[in-house]
């Protein structure tokens, strides 16, 4: 709890949240992810960068077993969340996904009211015992997503009626409402304008005090702005992983350097 109070240099103090060892992913015959091993820290923003099709989103989807929903996907290797193998037969993917939340590239609010969108997770997981508690969870989540002030007077109106940026923040609020331990974000700003992007980035920075955040991004500026750790993927390999500052200033691998300087990708 001390760490939450004083997250000065979280990368140094944080413990390992997710440990991946030798992760391979196949989509049918295609080998999408090759032997990835990585330690993702608690209360840290970790950015996955790399050119399109390099496997960063694929790896992200391994962390909450979303690849299970794709018929042809096959995942090998071990992924430990707090030391427990998430592919263990005793682990229910449904409960895993409650602990490891996800925000998608395109805002995908349900065709329900704003309130019901946020309350959906707490409801199905029984996180609130009564209406008052649920109200509190919804308000807290919307506040965390910096959306409360904009929607507090129209919680009953449909979530699909919000603007793109608001929808994405609604989706973040929805993911936050289940109190996950890890929040996975798959290019959360790619459909947003610069103002909404800035809001979401601010939010990510704030979420770090409670969650481990993993963000896939195409924007290297964004990775540099929001993350403490950066992983560079290329052609299914994890090429380099380290402190964000080090990756962007003195990359060790020549491929990382070419990508960052805009020569490949």
């Amino acid at each position: 709890m001390n760490r939450a109070a004083a997250p000065v240099t979280p990368a140094v103090l944080a413990t390992v949240k997710i440990q991946a060892r030798g992760v391979q992913v196949f989509y049918g015959a295609a080998h999408a992810l090759k032997d990835v091993s990585i330690d993702i820290l608690d209360r840290t923003v970790t950015a996955f960068i790399g050119p399109s099709g390099c496997g960063k989103s694929t790896f992200l989807r391994c962390l909450n077993r979303m690849n299970d929903t794709i018929e042809i996907a096959r995942v090998e290797g071990t992924i430990l969340l707090d030391g427990q193998d998430i592919h263990d037969s005793g682990v229910d993917p449904v409960q895993l996904r409650a602990r490891v939340g996800m925000v998608f590239q395109k805002p995908n609010p349900f065709p329900k009211s704003i309130y019901d969108n946020v309350a959906y997770g707490p409801r199905i997981h029984g996180l609130a015992r009564n209406k008052a508690e649920l109200d509190a969870v919804v308000e807290r989540s919307l506040r965390r997503a910096a959306l409360w002030n904009e929607v507090k007077d129209r919680l009953a109106s449909p979530g699909t009626g919000l603007s793109g940026g608001q929808q994405q923040r609604l989706c973040i609020a929805r993911a936050v409402a289940t109190s996950p331990e890890v929040l996975l974000m798959d290019e959360p700003c790619s459909a947003l304008d610069p103002i909404a992007t800035a809001q979401v980035e601010e939010l990510i920075d704030e979420l770090r005090s409670q969650f481990s955040v993993v963000i896939v991004t195409h924007s290297m500026q964004q990775a540099a702005r929001v993350s403490q750790k950066t992983a560079f993927f290329h052609l299914g390999h994890l090429v380099e992983y380290g402190d964000t500052e080090q990756i962007f200033t003195i990359p060790r691998d020549p491929r990382t350097e070419s990508y960052i300087s805009g020569k490949i990708g």
């Binding site: 929903t69 996800m102 998608f104 349900f110 959906y120």
Partner: peptide, 25 residues
């Protein structure tokens, strides 16, 4: 598909996804 993924990623079971999200839509 994004709605389906959204519900599953929140930890909804397949049945919950169908009944609460897909069916209303």
């Amino acid at each position: 598909r994004s709605l389906r993924d959204g519900a599953l990623a929140l930890g909804a079971t397949r049945a919950e996804t169908v009944m609460n999200v897909l069916f209303p839509a």
